[in-house]
Amino acid sequence: MLIYEAHHFDLISNYHTLNLNFPSHLHRGFELLFLVDGEMEVIIRQKSYQLKTGQFLLILPYEIHSFSTKSHSRANICIFSPDYVPTFQRMIENSSLENPVFNLSNEANTLISRTLFKENSNLLEQKACLYLLLAELMGQTSLIKGDKQDPELLHKLLTHVQNHFTESISLKSIAGTLGYSYNYLSKYFNTHISMSFVDFLNETRVNYACHLLIYTEKNITEIAHLCGYESIRSFNRNFVKIKTCTPKEYREKQPQSFMDLYPLEPEIYINNSNES
């Protein structure tokens, strides 16, 4: 599964996790993780990093990543907007980090522990600590230049689908709305999402249907229409193709998954065909 977390946009958010396991997802904000205790595997762009107690890790905006804990982990996470660190955001444009795992000096660790990962901290102190942390990170790694990207377009596309997937939409209609050519958006989807727009839309609709099947008593025909399908036959065909069972069978199984902890809205759930 791939999750688009649209709500991480212009905020700074802190989370304290225990034995974190979370599937592939992406968002506009930077994500800083500090492993307080234990071990954790973090996969970024299909590359695995083994995080140990006391280490930090930084995930850049729109990088697809996931977390996995085999035995035990306790971590603090801070997700912050690129607008908080514009100088660094310009530095990393069209780049990735050679190694996102790093350590902090004792002086920086003491200062940052008082400010980050806490609610209601002073905003100026938070920004100052972020730049100090990023300076120490760049002293331990380097940037790898990549192809020119348009991350804001990715946000626009995913947000548009999120807001309109229950309606009759197409890539051509979105191209007209956003002012891009159909061919450009089609190539963009295949490059960044690793699937066609039609598959993307069907994955989004079917996974929303799963949410409704589990948490509501609506009948299957009503759910099909609520998810944007005009034909129950088309709904059933796509559901079986994606979930390898019928909607009725899925409801009877009552699967317990990460969706129990992380509600569907305001996120998009899709399969990631490149995920191992």
Rank of each mutant, 00 (worst) to 15 (best):
M195H: 01
F239I: 07
Q149N: 09
E31L: 06
H72R: 09
E107V: 14
E230I: 10
N272F: 15
G179A: 04
H8N: 14
Y269F: 14
L60N: 02
C227Y: 04
Q140L: 08
H8Q: 07
H192A: 01
E265S: 15
F9C: 04
N274F: 12
I242P: 10
K118C: 11
E275G: 04
F80D: 10
I43V: 14
I232V: 14
L116T: 00
R205K: 12
M259N: 06
Y262P: 01
I64N: 03
L212P: 01
L134I: 14
E93G: 04
Y262D: 13
S194W: 03
Y269W: 14
M40S: 10
N14V: 12
C210A: 14
V240S: 13
L124G: 07
N163L: 12
T115E: 13
L11S: 10
G29H: 05
C227E: 10
N238Q: 15
S68G: 02
D10A: 13
I92M: 10
H27R: 08
K253A: 15
I12C: 09
E167Y: 05
I169E: 05
K241D: 12
G38Q: 02
F258S: 09
F258T: 09
K145T: 09
R205A: 02
E98H: 14
T216G: 07
I169R: 01
R251T: 07
S71G: 04
P247R: 02
Y180Q: 12
A175C: 04
N163M: 12
K172F: 02
N219Y: 11
L226A: 15
L57S: 03
A135Y: 08
N106M: 13
T110R: 09
F80V: 11
L226H: 08
V85C: 06
E107W: 07
F30G: 01
N271L: 09
I144F: 02
I270Q: 01
D199A: 05
Q162H: 08
Q55R: 07
L111S: 15
G38P: 01
L226I: 12
K241Y: 09
